[in-house]
Design a protein around this nucleic acid. Structure first.
Lengths: 103, 103
DNA sequence: GGACCATATATCGGGGTCCGATATATGGTC
DNA sequence: GACCATATATCGGACCCCGATATATGGTCC
C-alpha cells in the first residue's frame, strides 16, 4: 500500500468524506506533513473503489455542483489496520538498531 | 522516502554490505516480508549514493568477480531515523482511531 | 553429466503511482 | 478586480519498482 492510499483510508475512518475533505483531513491528521495532490487523490480513489476498500456513500449537490462522499468498507478498515502494523514494525527495525548503537 | 530505500538504509545500519547481502538482510529484518528485487536495489543504491546517504566502503574480488560494499553515512543514519519517526507517527494515526472505535 | 539453486552484479523495459498544471465553477475577502 | 478557498476532473511528465534477462561460479541432487 502506498502512503497516499494509506492516508486516504485513514482520513475516512471517522466518517464519509468527499474528495476535498479527504485532502484536508489527511493534512490535519499528519500535522501538515501529508499534502495529497488532487491528481493523486482521484486516481487513488478509483483504485480503492475498484479494490472494494472504499465505496461511494452518497452524492450531494451543493451550489449546482456534485459532491461525492466516499466511505471506507470493513475490508478497507482491515487493510489500513494491517498496514499500520506493518509501518509500526518497519519503524521498529530502525529504532531498535539505533537504540543499541547509542548504548 | 520509498519503502525500498528505507529498508536498504536499515540493512546497512549494523555494517557495510554488498548488494546481495543487502537483499538478504532486508528480508531477515522484516521477517521475510520485504523482498528487494535486484532491479530495485541497484537503481536505489545509485540514487542513495548520489544523495550522499550511502558511500562505497570498499571493493573485494571473490572468485574473480567484484563485490562492492556499501556503507551508510551519518546523513543516511539521520535520514532513516527521521523516516522511522514518520512511519511511527503514520501508524499511530490509524491505531489511535481504531482503538477509539473499539471503546 | 545435467538440472537446479544460491551467490553476485548489471541493465532494460513495462507498468504503476505521484503530482503539478490545467480547466471549470462559485462565493467570500481585500 | 484580484485573489483565495472550495470542489471535481483529466492529462502528461517524472519517478520508482520489479520481473526478465545476461553473465559467471560452486554446490547439491539425481
Amino acid at each position: 500500500m502506498t502512503e497516499a492510499t494509506y492516508f486516504i483510508l485513514a482520513a475516512l475512518l471517522q466518517e464519509p468524506l468527499h474528495g476535498y475533505g479527504i485532502i484536508k483531513r489527511a493534512g490535519e491528521q499528519s500535522a501538515g506533513r501529508v499534502k495529497l495532490a488532487v491528481g493523486t487523490l482521484y486516481g487513488a480513489l478509483d483504485r480503492l473503489a475498484e479494490a472494494g476498500l472504499v465505496v461511494i456513500d452518497h452524492e450531494e449537490v451543493v451550489d449546482g455542483r456534485p459532491r461525492r462522499y466516499y466511505r471506507i468498507t470493513d475490508e478497507g478498515v482491515t487493510a489500513v489496520r494491517e498496514e499500520a502494523v506493518r509501518l509500526q514494525q518497519a519503524a521498529r527495525v530502525v529504532t531498535v538498531q539505533i537504540a543499541v548503537m547509542g548504548a
